[in-house]
Structure formats: C-alpha cells, structure tokens
C-alpha cells in the first residue's frame, strides 16, 4: 500500500532550480558524503537568561529515523526552531550535510535546501482547499514571477492526486482545509511535507489527536520513508516511538541526557529520574 518512496523520488537533476533571483537562495548543495545529514554542535539558546538549549550536540545520519523524547521544557521545539532558522542560536554550529551552515540561512532558504517541518499544532492554510494546500507546498520554483505565471501541468496534477490518495483525503480535495477534523489536518500536513520532497523531515508530535488506526498508518508511512529521507520525530507516545524503532534521544534541560534504542533508554536510571521526578 505504501509505495511512497518511488512516488517522491526526486528525478530532476539536483540544483537545476536553485538559480537566484534578487539574491535569494544562494545556498550550497547538499553533501551527504560522510553519511551525516544533520549535525548540531554545542548549540546554546537562551531567553532572558533561561537556557532553552544548553550545549546541545546531535548528529542525524542520512536515511536515519530518530525519535526525540523528553519532558516538557526540555528544548525539543526550540531545537526544531534552530534547525529551521526560526531561532538563531547564541552559540554553536548547525550543519545540514557537510557544507550547508543552517545558522546563516533564512527560513525559506532552509526549506529550499530540503528541510521540511511539521508543527506541533497542525498549521495548514485553513482558507484554502485541501488541493490548494498541496499545490502551494509542492516542490517547484517558488519565486514571485514563476508563481504569477504558474499553471498546473498534467504531471503536477497527478502528483497531487496521488498524494491525496496516500493521505486518504482524495474525497475532500475541494473542501476548505479549515473544516477538516483534527486527525485529517494532521494527515494533510504530513501530505504537504511529503509533496515538498525534503531530504530531512522534522515532525513535532505527528500523531497527537489521531485515532489508533491512523497512528498505525502514520508509523508505517514513516518507516517506509526512512532510508531515502532522514526523519526526526518528536513524540510523547511511547507506543508509537516503539513502533518506529530506531534510535531514541532523550533531551533534558536543553541538552542530551541519553541516547540509544528505546529499551536501553527506558532502563537508564537518569531518564527514569527525570520522568518520575526526584
């Protein structure tokens, strides 16, 4: 059922769409030669003296599916903000592949080099239809002039239709996205993320508000995406984390507390302390 990997394979030559207009998108090529997709070193972010991130170190391999867990206020969302350029770190390095320095790029540029993000609260374009939501996010030239002249080509329509089927919203294509149920909105946002064809997917609590069945399918989808894409999933639902497999990183007070597979992490004394309180 999940043939997503072929569907979203990027068949266009890399970099053909990166020409710059008025100085935007002068970014490097994604270089995964050393097998590391995302590399954070000594990242510190503080708000009014409160350290949201404290010397955070994290490396995500190409094709890896990584789960991040941690109590409230551990810095999970701030970490995503740093990676996507929303928050600038006070110090530290953030690299995408070998050569792209994320701390120097703006949000659209980061999206352009291939990092997609799903927010904790589903953020879709509520006034647009489901179809338009996908049309807007689809990987394409996103500069002003091209958008003015854009006219959907047949293969683009097919791609949207396929994504709609995948996220099971093909019957809702012309509905206003704001009218969808919470679970459907989550799916739509996942669909938007897929059609954007990122190399690295950041997913903040992707299954919150989903039924068990939907959660299951989401899990299958993520597992099938790993390998071709790198995924970072922030989640509280341990059953879901277990289903995804892969390495688990525990954040606490802005830095990494433990790392390993779920069983190891769950038996780690410090992790138990953090979760249960001292």
């Amino acid at each position: 059922m999940l043939n997503t990997v072929d569907l979203f394979e990027d068949d266009r030559p890399e970099g053909s769409d990166g020409a710059d207009q008025m100085g935007q998108f002068v970014t490097g090529e994604l270089d995964l030669s050393h097998g590391v997709a995302l590399y954070l070193e000594d990242i510190t972010v503080s708000f009014d003296g409160f350290k949201a991130l404290n010397n955070l170190n994290l490396a995500i391999n190409a094709g890896e599916l990584r789960c991040i867990i941690g109590p409230n206020g551990a810095g999970k969302t701030t970490m995503m903000d740093v990676i996507t350029g929303k928050t600038r770190p006070d110090s530290g390095k953030a690299f995408f592949g070998q050569s792209i320095d994320l701390t120097r790029l703006t949000e659209p540029e980061i999206a352009h080099v291939g990092i997609g993000r799903k927010f904790q609260k589903p953020t879709i374009f509520e006034q647009h239809t489901v179809f338009e939501n996908l049309e807007l996010t689809m990987k394409t030239d996103k500069r002003v002039w091209k958008s003015l002249m854009a006219w959907l080509a047949g293969d683009e329509r097919d791609k949207i239709a396929e994504t709609l089927r995948l996220i099971r919203l093909d019957k809702e294509a012309d509905r206003q996205a704001g009218l969808l149920s919470h679970g459907q909105k989550q799916w739509l946002e996942i669909g938007m993320l897929l059609i954007q064809e990122p190399k690295l997917l950041l997913l903040d609590e992707p299954v919150a508000g989903m039924t068990d069945d939907e959660t299951m399918r989401t899990g299958e989808l993520f597992v099938s995406l790993a390998g071709k894409h790198s995924l970072v999933v922030v989640e509280h639902d341990m059953a879901f984390v277990e289903k995804l497999g892969g390495l688990v990183t525990v954040l606490h007070e802005g830095s990494v507390l433990a790392e390993g597979d779920l069983a190891t992490v769950q038996n780690d004394q410090r992790v138990i302390e953090v979760y249960l309180g001292r």
Binding site: T84, K86, E107, I110, A111, T123, H128, K142, S147
Partner: peptide, 26 residues
C-alpha cells in the same frame, strides 16, 4: 493565480509559508 494563493497563505499563516520555502518578503 498561484501568486494570489500564496499571498492569502501568507496572510493566514506567514511562518508556515516560510517553512515551505516561499520568501514572503518578495
């Protein structure tokens, strides 16, 4: 046009538009 849809998207959720790769400035 698609331009118009991007514009309304910026109106409704500007930060989301940025994370998809559009630069709202232009």
């Amino acid at each position: 046009s698609k331009f118009g849809r991007v514009l309304t998207a910026i109106r409704d959720a500007e930060s989301r538009v940025m994370f998809i790769g559009y630069n709202p400035l232009w």
